[in-house]
């Protein structure tokens, strides 16, 4: 009973991890760009929900999902066009660049919205929960459904749509894709738009759990990178499994150990380090003949 409850909690933590990591499987996993400002796109999505609240009232979360996707996506596109594209192939410079940008964005948020954290009120139908022996809070169910929905949408996009297939082609072998007539630069832009937009969606989901502040993204960025690395770079399947595995591991360690909140984090880190010793490529690897 308690164990089942904890499994549900783990799955809901996993869903949150998955949502915040999805965007990174594109920009970090596929393009190899370490975008330290990814967390700030999460924050931008969360603040979008906050800003929409007085305009559209209690249903703001639903309206915010597409709007936040667009806002964060456009921010990502601007970042890619103005800065990151000049640094392709120079990962260390990209790292410093995007880290600086993330600090700038945090300060901008602090100036616009004030330093204290703000709250987004959940719509009425998201408060309370479902009792099926175990208690399923509606906001958690919503996040899980959202995460599953996003994964499905991405999977369909990557496998069924022409744009998605082009994206995979570029990620697997840029030169070959280019000589085959794929406009790689356009594909890069689109990839960055989608990856950043997904961060915005994750931001909206996070408003259902806790407060919104300028450092919201920073709190989650490390977890997001962990999921992508453990799952295997650019692997949707890997990210899904890694997110839920880490979420469930976290929730059980926290439950079994007295005063487990801090220790759970330690155990998760240790497990990932151990895992990467055994499988440095993560759970899944793309096999290509590209020289790296």
């Amino acid at each position: 009973m308690a164990t089942l409850n904890q499994l549900v909690i783990g799955a809901s933590i996993g869903a949150v991890l998955l949502l915040i990591a999805l965007g990174l499987t594109f920009t970090f996993g596929q393009m190899g760009v370490i975008n330290m400002a990814h967390g700030e796109f999460i924050m931008a999505g969360a603040y979008t929900a906050y800003l929409l609240q007085p305009l559209v009232g209690t249903q703001s979360v639903l309206v915010a999902l597409p709007v936040a996707f667009a806002v964060a996506g456009v921010l990502g596109l601007i970042l890619e066009r103005l800065a990151i594209r000049h640094f392709y192939g120079r990962p260390l410079d990209t790292l410093l660049l995007t880290w600086g940008i993330s600090l700038v964005l945090q300060q901008v948020a602090r100036d616009i919205f004030g330093a204290p954290n703000v709250q987004v009120r959940a719509p009425g139908w998201l408060t309370g929960g479902l009792d099926l022996g175990v208690r399923l809070p509606y906001n958690r169910v919503f996040i899980m459904v959202l995460a599953v929905g996003c994964v499905l949408a991405i999977w369909l996009y990557l496998t069924r749509l022409r744009h998605g297939r082009r994206m995979r082609a570029v990620m697997q072998n840029r030169q070959l894709a280019a000589v085959s007539g794929v406009a790689t630069e356009r594909v890069d832009q689109l990839t960055f738009f989608i990856g950043s937009g997904l961060a915005g969606v994750a931001g909206v989901a996070l408003t259902l759990i806790g407060p919104v502040g300028p450092t919201l993204g920073t709190n989650y960025i490390v977890d997001a990178f962990l999921v992508v690395v453990a799952g295997g770079l650019g692997q949707l399947r890997g990210a899904v499994i890694a997110a839920f595995a880490l979420g469930i591991l976290n929730s059980f360690v926290e439950f079994w150990v007295d005063n487990g909140a801090s220790l759970a984090k330690v155990v998760v880190f240790a497990v990932i380090i151990g895992f990467l010793q055994l499988r440095p490529q993560g759970m899944f690897v793309v096999r290509t003949r590209a020289l790296s």
């Binding site: 970090f28 190899g32 370490i34 990962p91 260390l92 790292l95 490529q281 790296s292």
Partner: peptide, 14 residues
């Protein structure tokens, strides 16, 4: 490929 992965991990550590 493993090489690339290792590089990215080093970046992450940084």
């Amino acid at each position: 490929m493993p090489r690339g992965v290792r590089d990215r991990l080093v970046m992450l550590a940084a």
